[in-house]
Amino acid sequence: MSQTEHGAAVNRGNRPLSPHLQVYKPQITSVMSIFHRVTGVGNSIGAILVAIWFISAAIGAGPFDTVNGLLTSWVGHLILFGFALSVCYHLCNGIRHLLWDAGYGFELDQVKTTGIVAVSAAGLMFLGLMIVGWMN
């Protein structure tokens, strides 16, 4: 007996569960979809850090130095590195999603091509962001 989300008991018997993620061979379609969600959640953490950074700057130089010190430590750099990767991917693949929403690119070969384009564009965007960040 298992429970539904409303708490009512349901007799599932010994019927098998439908196959789930782990039984399927990873494909560009499924992997990119999963990463879109993962990077979305990752971006939320980054957004909170960005908000804290702005709030500390508005309070004054003292609190800002504390936050800035944490973000420029090696752990901070590691987090920012991951955040930048995550943002670039979510942005490029997000544009791919918007094209689907508009009704374009549903053929399998198009799905593969736009997937490769999105990942490549994300990589270039990440490199560009790193160059801007490091040069200044």
Binding site: A61, N68, L71, L80, V87, I95, L98, L129, V132, G133
Partner: peptide, 23 residues
């Protein structure tokens, strides 16, 4: 999403420049 696709590049370039700079 459409707003962010436009705003994100405009935001992240000055942000990448500002990050790590003194107050």
């Amino acid at each position: 999403a459409i707003s962010l696709a436009v705003l994100a590049p405009l935001f992240f370039i000055p942000f990448a420049i500002a990050l790590g700079k003194p107050w």
